[in-house]
Write a protein that binds this DNA or RNA. Structure first.
Lengths: 112, 112
DNA sequence: CCCATAGGTATCATTGATGATACTACCTTA
DNA sequence: TAAGGTAGTATCATCAATGATACCTATGGG
């Protein structure tokens, strides 16, 4: 373990706080895989999410600088979301978690 | 992004579910850094946690196969916790999150 | 005889995250 | 004239996570 990690003030919570939530990882994956998406596209791809939650999660990700929000002043409204360059830094972490998650799901099946 | 990641059934939640909680990362870091620890040692190192929560988190980590629990039939009781070999797989992920977390804390300070 | 110790459980209260549902603005098309 | 589409907000209800507090066990030491 990296010597300078001080558990009592470590920054893992920072990353977790950004990623957790029932919907954030899946939203991020869609934006990373498919690129820029409209609000309604995301809603269609994740039908179980309520509008309220989708809005909330996107706003939080935006506040963290991970997602960019662009509003087109049209009628009907058009709002596009995309991953920022800064947000791309999360990709390796998400991938590592995905990989570990698969192994772990397997592990749990074996020890069920 | 890895092509075979299907957001709608991805395993990131699996990893997140294992790591989140107000106390799990810090518990894992202590066990990874300091090695085997007694219940009371962990409690001393994380004074703000209640016994109930410490017990609960440790039991959950044990159930996931990440932490090993060894009971010594003595009086007063002695119980030791350690990271399993399997649990070691999480170390790179925790480190990556820690690193990103530091950058992100910096980022937030600059954009405050 | 009584208390401290280690590692817990049991019970209740509180809080934050999530969900269901209804409502809005504005323009275009039928 | 009414309906439909987009991107939301507002309000209320519910549930899981966390916390505070008290209690339990057995034994060795004073």
């Amino acid at each position: 373990m990296n010597e300078h990690i001080k558990p009592d003030q470590c920054q893992i919570q920072e990353a977790l706080g950004t990623l957790v939530g029932k919907w954030k990882p899946i939203i991020l994956l869609y934006l990373m895989k498919e690129g820029t998406q409209r609000f309604s596209e995301l809603k269609r791809e994740i039908p179980e999410i309520t509008q309220k939650m989708l809005t909330k999660q996107l706003r939080e990700l935006e506040a963290e600088g991970i997602v960019a929000r662009e509003v087109y002043p049209e009628v009907p409204p058009k709002v596009e979301y995309s991953i920022t360059e800064y947000g791309r830094d999360l990709q390796p972490i998400l991938e590592a978690m995905h990989e570990w998650g698969e192994k772990h799901a397997q592990y749990k099946k074996e020890n069920a």
